[in-house]
Design a binder for these strands. Structure first.
Length: 801
DNA sequence: AGCACGCCGACT
DNA sequence: GTCGGCGTGCTC
């Protein structure tokens, strides 16, 4: 029996199946989608079984070394999805498989020296560095400068070098004890015990009372006051038995979720859900765009759809942009579906993610709520896939495999015969265009639930403020409203668009801005460490006191970081209690939730933060939302900047007045006439859509064109430019005249970690030969050699940097 | 990705 | 003459 295996070596030359003999012992056990350990050259590596060919053209097949799973970790559907993913995103097959599994399952490799003779016969220098098992790792050997000696020992046959595959996936174990005696016997033992063995008696009584159910050691100790020593003795004397039980790490261990029931849907919601449920009933695929204004009750539509899916004994995936940011969403799902729900997000530890994944794999849950990678949850009978806030850019993975969760969702749903729901108040242009064309089924929720009024949005022209002599970051309007909230004891959210506005150092005399010496970006000033830092390569530097260019002393910290806003707030409104949320204050695990909870409990008047507070914030007492400068995002070199600005402003505005109190939104800007800001004021999505579509058409951008971005980087500028030109002309030659090629041009970030970056952007409508061409370009230019060009291809890129 | 093999320069 | 630099090709 022969198995073909995709090996864990991400390189172009190994991006194919290798064949192995299946040893007798594994036959009847081994299945496609299981992980194995195989010999590969001199080492041992992990691989995935993908098939069982009848015969092999290869003469000298090696045996599979070890079978790592009892149940396949990738089912048939995921295996074929992996192949699709690798073709679609031009990545290696092994990378596609790896991305579908939790990080904990990625194999680790270690080289170990093992003694072949009695350990005492080895030199003392070696012995003293060995571990208990008489092994010495390669790493330790290098650290202690023993490689020479080890080499001699290996050649003389006294030691051997082995390549080990280590699994990082550790299952959490708990020590369990149970009675090793029959109940009658235990009673006898108690009676025969001396009076001094009081603790032991107590333990035995405990087991008799619980009818000898095995109990965790921890519990027994707490209940009886017995110590580890007591229990040890009892085990030694044969009264108790010890075993290990696997337990799940529960990220929500100390949280109670109130059970909730379905709400009655409004007419509008009912009209939206009916066509979805029809598709669920038919086991047929359809992509729905659920376009609903903020507060229109999209979530209830999701919940009731999932309810239906569960009734049919099927499963559901619900994607959210970044779940740790929306504990309220977790709450709603756990509340409705209880322990049927697994939660997957980046805030979990590797082990916690692994445990949540295993709950799905073992069919212990039927619903997954999670971020992007949750789209690969190993369900076998999907009934619906929901993507909330469909327009969010975090659904696109920015490193290989560069997939978009939306595309994967639709591909999976086709295979399972189930609907996809894309929900948003501000759908991406691509999605809305598809809905308009009839490729997606458009569902609209135009009314807010409970007839809440939409918040009142006003725009403040900051140029006008400046003319009036107001040089502060706060317009008079905003300050006035802020004061009003303080008096009324209501809350405010202040939103600062961080991109392009983080604090940098600038010389007021000559305009010098401190740049990273290795990357073409300004360095950011970090207050708490009093250092300059590069966000791309992490390079740190001292804060300059005099300008290195003109030696002026007027060099200072510039820009509007959240810290600076906080300081200004403290001067303007000293009585206000402010909670600041940014990278600095939320870096510790769980601090996010804590800060939000504190704000929810009314411990502060103002919540000040960046992007991260734009989502999922839903507190009744927020009646004012201020956007300090709406246009920082608008000037980024990105054709989606207007779309992103509109989405963000709409999103942020939705935070105000979600309950019975009326909300007020103030947007400060230097370009009030820009359509994305003007239309965000009136929250007219369709008007914005029409305008933006015209811009995209003239600019020849998506959704009118598809795109592919090739980025090259190398230390030598000339080399990058030369290769980029070569590739560009090759593309021009091979593709049709319909194709528009921009490049070679320097990337918006022209240098990172001292490597110059050039790119070539391909815009196309229909191009059969594109994928094969890109694949061959990768093949020709991608190489593992050092000092060679790095090539990166992103199909449908989101970040143009 | 590793690792062995193999071909050239600078050393005891 | 050999040691060691890294460029090339292979791994079932």
């Amino acid at each position: 029996m022969i198995a073909s295996v995709i090996v864990d070596v991400p390189a172009k030359q190994t991006d194919r199946a290798f064949e192995y003999r299946v040893p007798e012992s594994m036959q009847g056990l081994i299945q496609r989608g299981m992980r194995v350990v195989v010999p590969f050259g001199p080492r041992k590596i992990q691989g995935f079984v993908v098939g069982f060919p009848e015969q092999s053209s290869f003469k000298q097949l090696k045996d599979i070394e070890e079978l790592l799973d009892i149940v396949p970790v990738l089912n048939q559907e995921l295996l074929s999805l992996g192949l699709w993913l690798s073709q679609e995103t031009l990545c290696y097959q092994i990378s596609a498989m790896q991305v579908m599994l939790p990080a904990a399952m990625k194999a680790k490799y270690e080289k170990v020296f093992d003694a072949l003779v009695p350990i005492d016969d080895l030199p003392q220098t070696i012995i003293e560095h060995m571990d208990r098992n008489g092994q010495l790792t390669w790493k330790k050997g290098t650290e202690n400068n023993l490689l020479r000696d080890l080499q001699t020992l290996v050649t003389s046959g006294e030691m051997e070098l082995r390549y080990e595959v280590k699994s990082k996936a550790k299952k959490k174990k708990e020590r369990i004890i149970s009675l090793a005696l029959s109940c009658d016997h235990a009673i006898e033992v108690i009676q025969s015990m001396s009076a001094r063995s009081e603790k032991q008696k107590k333990v035995l009584h405990m087991f008799l009372q619980s009818e000898n159910t095995p109990l965790p050691v921890k519990i027994v100790k707490e209940e009886t006051g017995a110590t580890s020593a007591t229990i040890r003795t009892m085990i030694d004397r044969g009264f108790l038995e010890e075993s290990q039980k696997e337990v799940y790490r529960d990220p929500f261990e100390h949280r109670e979720f109130k059970r909730t029931k379905s709400f009655r849907l409004t007419d509008e919601q009912q009209q939206a859900i009916d066509p979805i449920l029809d598709k669920v009933d038919d086991y047929s695929h359809e992509t729905f765009l659920l376009h609903g204004v903020t507060g229109s009750g999209k979530t209830e539509v999701y919940l009731q759809t999932i309810d239906k899916v569960l009734q049919q004994d099927r499963q559901a995936i619900m994607l959210v942009p970044e779940i740790s940011l929306t504990p309220q969403m977790v709450e709603r799902f756990k509340g409705r579906f209880g322990d049927q729900v697994a939660v997957m997000h980046s805030g979990l530890s590797v082990g916690e993610k692994y445990d949540e994944w295993r709950k799905i794999h073992r069919k212990e849950v039927n619903v997954v709520v999670g971020a992007r990678s949750a789209i690969f949850s190993p369900f076998e009978r999907l009934g619906v896939i929901i993507i909330d806030e469909e327009h969010e850019t975090s659904y696109k993975q920015e490193d290989t495999p560069r997939y978009h969760a939306r595309d994967v969702a639709i591909e999976r749903a086709k295979r399972h015969g189930c609907p996809v729901i894309l929900g948003s108040a501000t759908p991406s242009l691509e999605t809305f265009a598809r809905a308009q064309k009839g490729l997606y089924y458009l569902l609209t929720l135009s009314k807010r639930m409970n007839d809440q009024a939409m918040p009142h949005v006003s725009i403040v022209d900051m140029r006008e403020e400046l003319r009036k002599g107001n040089r502060s970051m706060f317009s008079r309007d905003l300050l006035e409203q802020l004061q009003l909230r303080l008096e009324k004891n209501e809350q405010t959210v202040l939103f600062l668009n961080k991109r392009g506005h983080s604090s940098f150092i600038m010389c007021r005399d000559c305009g010098y801005v401190m740049q990273c010496p290795y990357c073409e970006v300004s360095m950011t000033y970090h207050r708490h460490s009093e250092q300059m830092k590069c966000h791309y390569c992490g390079h740190q530097d001292r804060v300059p006191v005099i300008c290195p260019e003109c030696h002026s002393e007027h060099i200072r910290y510039f820009g509007t970081g959240t810290q600076k806003v906080e300081e200004e707030l403290a001067t303007l409104l000293p009585q206000a209690r402010v909670i600041r949320m940014d990278v600095d204050t939320t870096s510790r695990k769980g601090s996010h939730e804590k800060l939000l909870a504190a704000f929810g409990e009314g411990q502060a008047d103002i919540l000040l933060g960046t992007q991260m507070i734009a989502k999922g914030l839903d507190f009744p007492n927020i009646t004012l939302v201020g956007v300090l400068s709406a246009d920082t995002m608008l000037h980024l070199p990105d054709f989606r900047s207007a779309e992103k600005t509109f989405q963000l402003l709409t999103q942020v505005s939705g935070r105000a007045g979600r309950h019975d109190k009326e909300g007020e939104v103030i947007i400060q800007t230097y370009t009030p006439e820009h359509y994305s800001i003007d239309l965000a004021k009136s929250q007219e999505f369709e008007a914005f859509y029409k305008h933006e579509m015209i811009m995209r058409k003239t600019g020849q951008y998506p959704p009118f064109y598809y795109m592919a971005l090739i980025t090259l980087s190398h230390e030598n500028v000339l080399k990058v430019v030369a290769v980029c030109e070569e590739i560009t002309s090759l593309i021009k030659q091979k593709l049709s005249s319909q194709v528009i090629i921009l490049g070679p041009v320097a990337s918006p970030i022209a240098r990172i970690q001292n490597r110059y970056r050039y790119q070539c952007l391909i815009k196309y409508k229909q191009e059969q030969g594109l994928k094969p061409l890109l694949k061959s370009i990768l093949n020709d230019y991608q190489s593992s050699k050092k000092d060679s060009i790095t090539i990166q291809i992103d199909v449908q890129p989101y970040m143009m940097m």
